[in-house]
């Protein structure tokens, strides 16, 4: 069955520069720098990436960063906690907008 997401397409990511090579070069250089060890280790950055991947629900990123997290020495428990961090922030972001709902409700309602 055809699907919009094909795992093999992840391997073609590098080809995205075909029609805009300069921009792609800059992006991939930046990307590489971002994930190099700095104040945070590569392992920690990979866990952040995994959490973000779940927040933005990108199947390519989830595939890639699950493997990267394992390769950087993370385990299933750590990765699950990272996903919960993403879930908490996503859920919290919805819930905190409840304050806006309350503000409007309070203004419009009689009590």
């Amino acid at each position: 069955m055809e699907t919009y997401y094909n795992p093999q397409d992840l391997l073609k990511f590098g080809e995205i520069g075909k029609d805009a090579p300069k921009l792609a070069k800059k992006f991939f250089e930046y990307y590489g720098e971002v994930f190099a060890e700095g104040e945070l280790t590569e392992r920690e950055k990979s866990l952040i990436a995994l959490a973000v991947a779940h927040a933005i629900q990108c199947p390519y990123c989830i595939d890639a960063y699950t493997q990267t997290c394992l390769e950087k020495g993370s385990n299933s428990g750590e990765m699950t906690e990272a996903v919960h961090v993403a879930t908490a922030i996503r859920g919290g972001a919805s819930l905190v907008h409840g304050v806006q709902m309350r503000n409007i409700n309070d203004k419009l309602s009689m009590g």
Partner: peptide, 14 residues
């Protein structure tokens, strides 16, 4: 599992 090892220096440090 079926994945590559971490960079040796980083694993040793951790």
């Amino acid at each position: 599992g079926a994945f590559m090892p971490s960079a040796q220096e980083q694993v040793e440090k951790r």
